[in-house]
């Protein structure tokens, strides 16, 4: 009865942004991205891709609570890059990897 609706897990509520971005006030070049309605699937792959970036000093994600359907991705980069740049770069690289896989697959 009190159980939350299952669709809340993957439908972004109206008026909420899919991604929000918050800069760290104490550390230079550090920021936290909140991605709504995503889980380990995206968190893990994004983190692994960020680790490949030589300018990224720290990248990690967490799922704050099983009933809060969002992930937090924290990125800390060197001064050569910025969290936003690293984040976009990681998505672009993953996107190209997927394109490559799709083209290379044949049955």
């Amino acid at each position: 009865m009190n159980a939350p609706d299952r669709y809340e897990r993957f439908v972004v509520p109206e008026g909420t942004k899919k991604v929000s971005y918050e800069r760290d006030t104490k550390i230079m070049n550090a920021a936290a991205f909140t991605v709504e309605r995503e889980d380990h699937t995206i968190g893990n792959i994004l983190r692994m891709q960020l680790h490949r970036d030589p300018n990224v000093l720290f990248a990690g994600y967490k799922l704050p609570h099983p009933l809060q359907y969002k992930i937090l991705v924290r990125i800390h980069t060197t001064s050569q890059s910025s969290p936003m740049q690293a984040y976009n770069q990681a998505i672009n690289d993953l996107d190209r990897e997927l394109d490559h896989m799709k083209n290379a697959f044949e049955v």
Binding site: K18, V19, S82, Y87, N88, N92, D99, K102, F105
Partner: peptide
């Protein structure tokens, strides 16, 4: 593969509109 790609792109497109002022900051 297509769904993973669409998911990734859904973050990137939404990025652009706050790129300007936040990066300036």
């Amino acid at each position: 593969l297509a769904i993973l790609k669409r998911k990734l792109l859904s973050f990137r497109v939404l990025e652009d509109h706050f790129l300007d002022h936040d990066l300036a900051g």
